[in-house]
């Protein structure tokens, strides 16, 4: 199957510009990047059909090979429709993001940054625990469960204490 250089060049250029726009902070440029990538893929699908052929309108006279390959055309049509619907949805997101926070930026996830900068001290693991030598609270403040936290004995368990 011979390769059409023009298509390849167009596709390459569209991909390059699309990716450049995609990695942008501004949401509008990201959406434009996505639209451009979708167009580039349509060109790729078209080129897989091989050569330029007659329009796929059947009539008995024409040999089967002369038509332009109808299957990639069906794929391209589906791809156009899907990229249209995704673009429409992204426009809704851009407007909503503008209404909510007056900015058209792709925002970073603040939870990630908070987790990455959290301190390693964790009360549950590292807090100092007083040693208690009994399970039963003295009768006067006995609430229903035996052995509430009562630091009575100061038995020095050598390695427990930090």
């Amino acid at each position: 199957m011979s390769i059409n250089i023009t298509f390849m060049v167009i596709m390459g250029a569209l991909y390059a510009c699309g990716i450049y726009l995609l990695l942008e902070r501004s949401l509008t440029r990201v959406v434009l990047g996505l639209a451009m990538l979708a167009n580039a893929t349509n060109i790729l699908l078209l080129s897989t059909g091989g050569f330029q052929g007659l329009a796929p309108l059947f009539n008995a006279g024409i040999a089967v090979e002369d038509y332009n390959d109808p299957l990639p055309q069906a794929f391209i049509l589906t791809s156009i429709v899907i990229s249209f619907s995704v673009t429409a949805f992204m426009l809704g997101i851009i407007y909503r993001s503008w209404v909510l926070s007056r900015q058209d930026e792709v925002q970073d996830d603040i939870e990630d940054r908070r987790v990455a900068s959290q301190s390693s001290f964790d009360a549950e693991d590292d807090a100092d625990v007083p040693e208690d030598t009994t399970e039963f609270t003295p009768p006067e403040e006995a609430e229903e469960a035996p052995g509430s936290l009562r630091a009575t004995g100061q038995s020095t368990r050598p390695e427990a204490k930090e």
Binding site: F7, L46, Q52, G53, L54, P56, N68, Q73
Partner: peptide, 14 residues
Amino acid sequence: IFALQGAPDLALTQ
């Protein structure tokens, strides 16, 4: 390009 390549449906829809 679609029109030239012989895909009228595509050109119209695009």
